[in-house]
Design a protein around this nucleic acid. Structure first.
Lengths: 328, 328
DNA sequence: AAATGTTGCGGAACCGGTTCCGCAACACAA
DNA sequence: TTGTGTTGCGGAACCGGTTCCGCAACATTT
């Protein structure tokens, strides 16, 4: 009961295997032979061996996706979007996880190339010369999501603009003593763009700002929230991600503060649970899933040689909810 | 600048390609030739073509993972565990998403077989005769996580026992008017085992129970929470998942109830954010990540022909937190 | 009717590995 | 010295496809 091969089909249909191959790939085949082959393939439900095909063509119908972590909301949603679209188009998604190690991103670029993926979608955190060198070397289309660089096709979130717009809104509402809780700068989009957007909005209104730096892990921002609760020095705490906001909320609650009465809190990212928190969390919604789908479209365009913009922005949506108070 | 092949190595080293192959696969090779080949391989940084290898061996170093959805906490964490362990052991994870369509699970079993994955880890929701037929047909080791069946190796969560233990605890605390919010029965583990465990604990203590059925989506349980809030008929709402609890909490908050003063709420699953909610959520923690790693170990054992138990249980941990009140 | 053009198809080479088989060289025992 | 066993290595076949090339059969043009 081994797998049916093109030779079997050829023998059963009484033709040469090259003819079967031509039939499969749309070459010129006579009516009569066409029917014979068709029937035999039906009966045996023959499926071509993908390794043999790839061996010859040096190509696969796979798109590699490099993600920094598998358990982040943003990554999950993006992967969903990518997968949906790729499946529709007859491609498959090959996810590789780098566990947030930059070194492994570079490794995986080479590794995916070795596996002859047709293209790579890279959910980036930081872009180094070594990344660029790898991308250059592997000769495979790469689409970068969430970060940008002049020489790599990228699909970026308008972090700066969204942060600025949200910060502006808070200023309009009269907040002047603000605390910003961000992450390290190595993550350009989250660590720098969001922070800079907010800070510009704040400074334009002459607000006083204090900054904390934490990680992407919820637990790490709890003590910061607690400290803020004790010091009681601000009317608003702006967080670089929803997870950070979650931790800050917990820390505030632990120190007996209520939101938004004692202090307001905002997040960034638009994770689904922010809506059902109590109080519901003011945040910026980023269209992760749609972005994933868009990325899939774009990488497929690159495969066909289409010329696309080096840099494409996604949109954003500000979700004003209960956790931020209107002061005036 | 094409890829270096075994022929190139053979030529450069002045030997036959069969010798190079033997060198690579640990056959008998003399000291002198060994060194020559070694050097050439170093210089060219040759890497064998995986398609050619798979074509011959009809095998890959990939383990397929079938998941119902990519954006569930349980699935993400499990995938992390799987991936970590597989990477350590030189295997790769190939994730396929079924978007919660049973039909696609079956499709993917065949599809993964076609791709010659070495083994399959299946995060199941329901097991039908057609699944079993597929598993039988493809002749590839399959490890089922989260559901069970006599003929399939499985790694199951002690849903029934955990639910029973947690329910028992609530009874000890004096709750007698209980509402259970569950999901459809087609999901055996979540829809049936959890429910049955709770109901047994409740009925043993003669508590009165009312049951609601909802979906896995947060939004769908908000109205249920709201309704419960208005009817005010129970001291405790037990939810089949943490997401459901989240929705119920929201619904209760919307109707002006506070937890746990007016009514207690518990979840199930142990998602990380349950700890930082306010009030923090009483729940059962299931070791998704560790289970993923364990599953990886088990499937690799199956590959080497080891005999392992058909059914393995994971452990669980009850997290008693603020959202459930002690009545007496 | 001869010259030319199409079309359909088979044979063979090729993709890049692995493995079987047999031979030569050498070591050792009788 | 001959016989036997071992070791190292090359040649060839094979895995299952695709593609190039050339030939035969038939249709079309002049």
């Amino acid at each position: 009961m081994r797998q049916v091969t093109i030779n079997d089909i050829a023998k059963l249909a009484g033709v040469a295997k090259s003819t079967v191959s031509r039939y499969l790939n749309g070459g010129s085949v006579g009516q009569a032979t066409r029917e014979k082959i068709e029937r035999v393939i039906q009966e045996t439900n023959y499926e071509p061996n993908q390794f043999a095909q790839s061996l010859k063509s040096k190509q696969t119908k796979m798109i590699g996706v490099i993600v920094p972590r598998l358990d982040s909301y943003a990554a999950s949603r993006t992967m969903m979007g990518i997968d949906e679209r790729l499946t529709e188009r007859g491609y498959q998604m090959l996810v590789v996880n780098t566990a947030q190690q930059t070194e492994r991103e570079i490794e995986q670029l080479y590794n995916l190339a070795k596996q002859k993926v047709a293209g790579i979608i890279w959910l980036g955190t930081t872009v180094t010369p070594r990344h660029l060198h790898a991308i250059e070397a592997i000769q495979i289309p790469v689409l970068l999501i969430g970060q940008e660089h002049a020489t790599v096709h990228s699909l970026v979130y308008p972090d700066y603009e969204a942060a600025y717009a949200l910060g502006k809104q808070f200023m309009d509402w009269g907040h002047r003593d603000v605390i910003y809780v961000g992450v390290e700068e190595y993550d350009i989009a989250v660590g720098q763009a969001r922070r800079d957007g907010f800070l510009r909005a704040f400074s334009e209104s002459g607000a006083s700002v204090k900054t904390y730096t934490t990680t992407f892990k919820i637990e790490d921002s709890i003590p910061i929230g607690a400290q803020i609760g004790h010091e009681q020095a601000a009317s608003l705490v702006v967080c670089a991600t929803d997870n950070i906001a979650l931790g800050v909320l917990k820390g505030l609650a632990n120190s007996g503060k209520t939101v938004p009465n004692d202090v307001s809190v905002s997040g960034f990212g638009g994770y689904d649970f922010t809506e059902v928190l109590h109080p519901s969390l003011t945040t910026v919604h980023l269209p992760y899933r749609r972005t994933g789908a868009k990325a899939a479209d774009m990488i497929l365009q690159l495969l066909t040689g289409d010329v696309i913009a080096m840099k494409t922005f996604t949109n954003f949506e500000i979700k004003l909810r209960e956790s931020v108070d209107i002061l005036k």
